[in-house]
């Protein structure tokens, strides 16, 4: 007998077909708007070099703190760099960094959480202890350490913060996984003769998904802030590369001098991005049908 894994054609083509109406029914118009804004932000990030009207790094001290004009729509910063261009180009690191952190931490954290919850007993105890030890390392410290060892730059910092985020993700998901594991529907799957892999991937994981998505959105916000902080400290994104978090820090003196545009615009974008992730995450997290 071939040991090919049994699979049900669960979500059929019908539910995979993309239609605007179907999407809006599932996530509501709020979700569509949030998704649209995020899509726009990501598009801007991808095509940033083409969209930026100026070289984001071109210093022009004579034009420092210029107010908005047809030349510089949002004016310039303390060293005369075009704020709009820096925002556009900065979206790349601002969005990509946290995204990588969250995806990395969620993949590994969820795998650990489900494995620990499924096996229980000693495996669970050991997993929880290891997570506790990881908890002891603050994300920023770990990031600085890795920057010191591997050199400053986004890659090392993202990896370090990603590792530091694993316990946050894993702990929350593990406790829900332990709860779900004990529910009769999981026992029923086992009793039906399903393999552990199948029960975990087809039953446990989908039912954890709302929590995973919620956890991802929360982490996204924190990761954005942590990465900005690391950039601010000079270990992450290296000047003169533009980054929203770095711009908030850079723009701080400007607020006192009556030129708040840079810090406010960068903060506003962070807020909008995090808000959209939250709304979309919530909507996607609501139970959806899985028909045959």
């Amino acid at each position: 007998m071939s040991a090919s894994p049994v699979s049900i054609p669960a979500p059929t083509q019908r539910s995979l077909r993309i239609s605007m109406k179907g999407i809006s029914e599932r996530i509501g118009w709020g979700g569509v708007v949030a998704g649209g804004v995020l899509a726009l932000l990501f598009l801007v990030a991808i095509f940033a070099p083409l969209l930026a009207p100026h070289d984001p790094n071109q210093v022009s001290l004579g034009e420092a703190y210029a107010s908005s004009s047809s030349q510089h729509w949002l004016g310039t910063d303390a060293t005369g760099r075009d704020i709009l261009s820096r925002l556009i180009v900065g979206s790349r690191t601002a969005l990509l960094g946290p995204l990588l952190v969250v995806v990395f931490a969620t993949l590994i954290g969820t795998a650990i959480a489900i494995f620990a919850a499924w096996r229980g007993g000693l495996t669970d105890t050991v997993a929880v202890r290891i997570l506790d030890i990881l908890f002891a390392f603050p994300a920023i410290l770990l990031a600085i350490l890795s920057a010191a060892v591997f050199g400053a730059g986004l890659t090392a910092v993202v990896l370090a913060i990603g590792i530091a985020y694993i316990p946050y993700v894993a702990r929350v998901i593990r406790s829900e996984a332990v709860r779900q594991r004990a529910l009769p529907y999981i026992t029923a799957c086992e009793a039906q003769g399903q393999s552990a892999l199948r029960v975990c991937s087809r039953h446990l994981l989908p039912n954890l998904l709302p929590l995973i998505i919620a956890q991802m959105t929360v982490s996204f916000g924190y990761a954005m802030i942590d990465l900005s902080a690391v950039s601010y400290l000079g270990f992450g994104v290296q000047p003169p590369t533009a980054d929203w978090g770095e711009m908030v820090a850079n723009g701080q003196p400007g607020i006192l001098l009556g030129h708040p545009t840079e810090a406010l615009a960068a903060s506003a974008l962070i807020v909008v991005a995090v808000l959209c992730f939250t709304v979309l995450g919530q909507r996607l997290g609501a139970p959806k049908e899985r028909r045959l």
């Binding site: 009769p184 529907y185 026992t187 029923a188 039953h203 139970p287 049908e289 028909r291 045959l292």
Partner: peptide, 12 residues
């Protein structure tokens, strides 16, 4: 109320 996967339809 708890012995069926909440994300799976009767037929599924």
């Amino acid at each position: 109320y708890a012995s069926l996967d909440p994300r799976q339809t009767a037929r599924g």
